[in-house]
Amino acid sequence: MPVFHTKTIEAILDPVAQQVSQLVILHEEAQDGNAMPDLSNPVMAVSAAVQNLVKVGKDTANSTDDKILKQEMPPAFTGVEESSNKLAEAAMELKRDPYSSPARKKLIDGARGILSGTSDLLLCFDQSEVRKIVRVAKGVLEYLAVSEVVECLEDLVTFVKNLSPGMANMANKVTSRSKELTHTAHANGLINHTENLKRTTPVLVSSMKIFVTVLKKGGAGRDEAQQNRNYIIGCMSHDVNEIIRILQLTSADDDELS
């Protein structure tokens, strides 16, 4: 049985995946030896649904700015279209010979191909959504680096005004994403690192305030204040980098999250 990466994809494809698995078992146990009924209508319905999905997919690929999505979608279209053609060929062959064994195998291959092709297509699109969250996270990472140049209270106020909405936006998106994942370890990783960031953001601001105050009072204790601030920036950057890494993992990367 395939493992689906997100709950949306799982909800769509898991019931069909289970049915196809049962079909494969029946075929392997040679329990499907009776004459096959005319499958023209259900096969035509699949073909029409494939055409509609591919059309929406092509519209998406044409309208997106995501170059990776543009590249990755066409092979997924080919996958579902070839599988649909395979089903049509099998149905025609079975109409001529309702006992044809190669045609039955072709039917099963076609059904499996529709399943994996649809999964690939949805995964391409899902990864594009992930890249949008990654862009937000990289923005936060860049902004964290700015904290090292803040040396007066006025700049600190501006920094906090900009960091807070960026951090909240990322936390919301990452939390929503964690709820979508079927892989518990990946979901927990995202939640833990987001919680770390929520906890350390006020600590960062506090450390920056101490650094700014030290500078204002003549600079005694500057090194310690700077080291403390940099340590917190390092911890927060690590959390954001981990979020970026985990966001890009798929269910196949089970061992990546140690």
Binding site: P15, V16, D32, V43, V46, A49, L53, V56, L87, E129
Partner: peptide
Amino acid sequence: NAGEMVKQAKLLAMATSQLVNAIKGEAED
């Protein structure tokens, strides 16, 4: 487009499910 992709994928999954049922119906007779 995300909603439309998901909708069309659901419709394809339903059509595939009906096809598999038609094949299985024969096999289970």
